[in-house]
């Protein structure tokens, strides 16, 4: 019962804030509304027993990424909103229609989608211990290899930022 109420509150709130993000005129408000949206989605993950993803969602998205967004918005120093107003052309109309088609398809696909595995199994999967165990056994190779991506990104950042004499 509590779960159902929680789900509906979070679901409606997250859709409402997502709509507000893209309709808001002030980019600063958009970013802040996006934080609310991320929190709602984090809450939705919790109702699905995915504790780990919920925590990561808050720390990474609502924390780190949003700070980046805020900085970028402030650095860009966006002036009048007029310049941001996009003109509607055939390309965008087509993209919109295709997006609608994709949304419709996803909805149809979800209608007859049965959850994989039993609920108990799903409950187990979301736990931090379970994920940690998987990461350190079955997925240890990809897990360690992610460090290479980070290293490469680090080298790239250095290369761009470094002053060579």
């Amino acid at each position: 019962m509590v779960e159902t109420v929680l789900f509906w509150v979070l679901a409606v709130l997250s859709i409402a804030t997502a709509l507000a993000v893209i309709t808001n005129r002030n980019p600063m408000y958009s970013v802040l509304l996006l934080v609310v949206n991320f929190f709602c989605i984090g809450g939705l993950y919790l109702t699905l027993n995915a504790e780990f993803i919920a925590v990561i969602q808050i720390i990474v998205y609502a924390g780190a990424i949003m700070v980046l967004f805020l900085f970028v918005v402030m650095l860009l120093n966006l002036g009048s909103e007029k310049s941001l107003e996009p003109a509607f052309d055939a390309k965008k109309g087509l993209a919109f229609l295709l997006g609608l088609a994709f949304l419709a398809e996803m909805l149809v696909a979800m209608k007859d989608f049965s959850a994989i595995g039993s609920a108990k199994e799903t409950f187990e999967y979301g736990k931090v211990e379970k994920i940690g165990l998987q990461l350190m056994t079955q997925y240890v190779y990809p897990f360690e290899m992610i460090s290479v991506i980070l290293l490469v990104a680090l080298i790239g950042a250095l290369m761009i930022a470094k002053k060579y004499n």
């Binding site: 997925y139 190779y141 992610i146 290479v148 991506i149 490469v152 990104a153 790239g156």
Partner: peptide, 30 residues
């Protein structure tokens, strides 16, 4: 970077897990 991207290519082409494929692709592309 050339050596690291070769590692990524190796992972991408010999992966059996789609997660591995994606990580390989990202190492290579980045």
């Amino acid at each position: 970077l050339i050596l690291f991207s070769s590692v990524g290519m190796n992972l991408l082409a010999t992966a059996n897990d789609l997660m591995m494929t994606f990580i390989g692709l990202e190492i290579m592309s980045v």
